[in-house]
Design a protein around this nucleic acid. Structure first.
Lengths: 153, 153
DNA sequence: CTCCGTAATGTTATGTTGTAACATTGTGTT
DNA sequence: AACACAATGTTACAACATAACATTACGGAG
């Protein structure tokens, strides 16, 4: 189930069970995030939707829709890059560990992987020893993807 | 050597060896970051310097100075919070591991600790397996500090 | 089916963060 | 003293984000 229609369908199902609405606009914005296949800033996403779907959408709307999508765990905001990505695992049903976002600083490609529980425990312990408690413990890390690394080399 | 004068003196020494200039303005901005003892946005830093040192400084200047301080490793930009902090270890001479910034989302207090090499290796391996290479691998994590945690509870 | 309340979207204005471009001033060197 | 370059000043603007209020769409009660 990797095609975009399948993913969107999954997203609709999920919203239905949450009694929320995946409206046409929200669907288009989510599609934009998925199809672009990388992290986009809100304004880049506006442009993408305009160019690819002929969709005119205001900054206000995009931010509201992104907020909704985040609430449904259909998208994430990457604070390192000030950009937004679709969740990598919309169409899978099993639970995941803590997410680690690998962000290519060259091309904004993003891979969402999962931290080993033991690694997470290490990080948590370090924090606790310092008098801090981790909250919202997803990790974002600046990377180069192999493609961009190859270009540099 | 924990008093602010000592730290500033260290910073000056360091700049001298790098043949760069820690000017009066730069010194004041760095002092602001140190004395506030938390992460400040650029504009908060402007206000802090204004209120505490009577220093009038433009946004442009602050950004330029922050850039300089980052280059000298006297300050860090925290992208999670869009704020800036002074480096915790200006006045120590020995090398450190990879920094992990624990940021209290309530009060912006920041603690800079160091990741165990084994933990770092784990993170790196996960990234590599996914086709990404970590760069600038400092870690920032959203936390609550014990003080703020106590207030909530 | 209609009416109503709420959710969603539109619209306008504005706040916040960050930088570009060019002018001026300061500082060390010859 | 003259020069070169570093630092700062000044103005304007770009990019990111939200507040406040108007309008439209939609689902449920009657």
């Amino acid at each position: 189930m990797n095609n975009i229609h399948g993913i969107i369908e999954q997203a609709e199902q999920q919203c239905k069970t949450h009694r929320t609405r995946l409206t046409e606009k929200r669907k288009q914005v989510l599609s934009g995030l998925i199809e672009s296949d990388k992290a986009l800033s809100a304004y880049e996403l506006i442009d993408f939707c305009k160019e690819n779907y002929g969709l005119n959408i205001s900054a206000m709307s995009v931010y509201r829709i992104l907020e909704f999508l985040e609430g449904e765990h259909l998208a994430h905001k990457l604070k390192l890059a000030n950009k937004y990505v679709s969740c990598a695992h919309i169409s899978c049903t099993h639970a995941h560990g803590v997410a680690q976002f690998l962000i290519c600083s060259e091309c904004s490609k993003v891979k969402e992987v999962y931290i080993k529980p033991t690694t997470m425990a290490d990080l948590q312990k370090t924090a606790q020893d310092a008098g801090f408690m981790l909250i919202g413990p997803e990790l974002e890390m600046n990377c180069l993807c192999d493609d961009c690394l190859a270009q540099v080399a």
